[in-house]
């Protein structure tokens, strides 16, 4: 079913992952059968609205989902061939920050305000690497220079003395200093000015080239994805709904949700009176539609969509979509039909 990345070469391989949150009000199926692969040196974009499960997916890879209430109930996460789904916290700690690292949306609050930049970088290095404080400091300065910070005395400065863009650079430096194999970037540019956004994206791309680090870029911004990513995965309500390489997805979006997302990008050359937005709202996680999860908001909705769950379907080579529209009549009739009873 998968393509693009030959087996054995994918650095991250998530298959049919199911992650539920067990709350007092009921079970929230935050991730419901997500498949996702990131190849060696590849940049993959994970796109979707807030609450669609993209951040939860990334935190699950890091092993940072608070348990309870969250729990992986099915599927697997493999990191460079190793099954890490049920690793203990102690095992995960050994790869966290060293082999997989992560940067977050809010550079303003992601650094500890009471410790210096140097302290936080040195700490990140010395957790995994046996070296003296001096060595760690010179390593820190080297990586800071690589991310474009050449300030004198930067190691002695506190986060509040830096701008948002600078802090995100520090976060990237901290994530990249041990040359991890996978960098998960959760909305790394959302909180930044547009001009700074471009700089940060450029930086990530050049680090990707230089170190060969694979990047999983999580964002709701299709513009960012178009610029950066080799492959794009679109998520909706805890499921992958479409997956294709960047060009195909933009030229020929096949899932109605993806089409809606693309339509809602404002265009300068067209004389639009109003910006397009997808009608309706994301379904409540405790009250998912029985069939296709996008059915209530879909302009092409059919009878089948309401009671049968569509599968991811290869509509053309290297292009998957979870929609009944692209599947033959036969598929619809023989479809799973086991409506979601929860």
């Amino acid at each position: 079913m998968f393509w693009g990345v030959p087996m054995g070469q994918s650095i991250l391989d998530i298959s049919t992952l199911e992650l539920h949150f067990f709350t007092e009000k009921g079970v929230i199926k935050a991730i419901d059968g997500v498949d996702l692969k990131v190849g060696e040196g590849e940049i993959v974009g994970l796109v979707g609205e807030s609450g669609c499960g993209k951040s939860v997916t990334s935190l699950a890879v890091m092993g940072l989902i608070p348990t309870p209430p969250g729990k992986i109930v099915g599927g697997s996460i493999r990191f460079s061939g190793q099954e890490i789904t049920h690793w203990t916290n102690k095992q995960m700690r050994k790869i966290r920050g060293k082999d997989i690292s992560m940067i977050f949306q809010e550079p303003m609050t992601s650094l500890n305000p009471l410790f210096t930049i140097g302290d936080q970088l040195v700490e990140a290095i010395r957790v995994h690497k046996k070296c003296s404080k001096k060595e760690a400091q010179s390593l820190s300065l080297a990586i800071l220079e690589k991310v474009g910070i050449k300030r004198v005395g930067i190691l002695k400065q506190y986060p509040h003395q830096l701008s948002g863009g600078m802090r995100q650079r520090v976060m990237i430096a901290m994530a990249m200093v041990l040359e991890p194999r996978l960098l998960i970037a959760d909305e790394p540019t959302t909180a930044l000015d547009v001009t700074i956004q471009a700089q940060i994206l450029d930086l990530m791309r050049s680090l990707n080239r230089e170190f060969g680090t694979s990047i999983l870029l999580i964002t709701h911004d299709l513009g960012v994805v178009a610029e950066m990513c080799d492959r794009i995965v679109v998520m909706y309500a805890g499921q992958v709904v479409e997956e294709a390489d960047g060009r195909k997805l933009f030229k020929n979006p096949s899932h109605p949700y993806t089409q809606g997302l693309l339509k809602s990008i404002p265009k300068l050359d067209e004389n639009q009176k109003r910006l397009y937005s997808i009608p309706g709202q994301v379904p409540h996680p405790l009250n998912m539609p029985q069939g296709c999860r996008f059915a209530p908001r879909c302009e092409y909705v059919m009878e089948t969509c309401w009671n049968k769950k569509p599968d991811l379907y290869e509509i053309e080579q290297e292009h998957l979509s979870r929609c009944w529209l692209h599947q033959g009549k036969e598929a619809i009739e023989n479809g799973k039909g086991d409506a979601d009873t929860t």
Partner: peptide
């Protein structure tokens, strides 16, 4: 957020709690 960052670095729970 910075506690999440500290965990993402691979720090042990003891350091996350008693330092950060």
């Amino acid at each position: 957020d910075y506690i999440r960052t500290a965990r993402a670095k691979g720090l042990s729970e003891f350091w996350v709690v008693y330092k950060h």
